[in-house]
Structure formats: structure tokens, C-alpha cells
Amino acid sequence: MKKIEIFDPAMCCATGVCGPSIDPELIRMAAVVHNLQTKGYDIKRYNLANDPDSFANHTVISQLLMEKGPDILPITLVNGNVEKERVYLTNEELMNLTGLTEQELTLKPRIRLKK
């Protein structure tokens, strides 16, 4: 199984899906990451504002940031190698990496409310 790491730009919260104007791409990525984690995939997402040590301590990421600046974010690594810069992986790219269908990848999480 492949290890996927997503290094996000600085956002207000871990997923970036809060505030007055929510980026639909961030909602898609939050659902995808949740679904992959639920299925046991090794996927982690780091936010520059909340996890600066993860950026500083990762040789590849810190080097890219020093060379190209923060506009290079988001960066996605697969097994430690740069898979994509500046934009998130598409659903099709994630399907190719994981073998999942688009429906499995984008299933919206269901939350049960307790009475």
C-alpha cells in the first residue's frame, strides 16, 4: 500500500473547510482523506499553520519551500516522492493510486447524532 502525504498551505483549521467562503476543492479533499483513512490507507495531511514542524523536518518539503516559496503548496508525496505540486491530486489520479472507484473515494461521511 502506498503512503500518501499532503502538505497544505496555511489554513484556518486542519481541513480548511471553515470560514465565510469555503473552497469546494478543500471539501473534496477532506472527504477523500477521510474515506481513504477509513479504508485503512496510509494518508496524512499537514497544514502549514498547524504543523510547521512537519514541513521543517521533512527534507523534500523544506527544500521545495526554500527553492520555490509557499506558492508551491499544496504538495502531495507518494512513498516520499513528489507526485504533484501547486494543486491537489484529482479523483482520477487518486483512483489510479489506490484502486478505489470514484464512488468509494468521494462518499460523503455520515455522522450519527445522539439523542
Rank of each mutant, 00 (worst) to 15 (best):
H58Q: 11
K68T: 04
D51P: 02
R86M: 08
H58C: 14
T59V: 13
L48T: 01
E85L: 08
S54N: 15
E85C: 11
E92Y: 01
L65Y: 13
N91P: 09
K44S: 09
N57C: 05
A56K: 15
M66D: 14
I72H: 05
T59K: 15
I75M: 02
P74S: 06
P74I: 04
I75S: 01
E67T: 13
D42F: 12
E67M: 14
K44V: 03
G69D: 06
K44L: 07
V60Q: 01
A56R: 14
P52H: 03
A49I: 08
R45Y: 13
Y88V: 01
G40D: 10
L77T: 05
D53A: 13
Y88L: 08
Q63E: 09
E83F: 07
G40W: 05
K84L: 04
V82I: 15
V78K: 00
N91H: 06
D53T: 08
K68I: 03
N81M: 08
L77V: 04
N47L: 11
S62V: 14
Y41C: 03
P52S: 02
I43T: 05
L89M: 00
M66R: 13
L73G: 02
V60T: 12
I61P: 08
E85Y: 01
N91R: 02
I43G: 04
A49D: 13
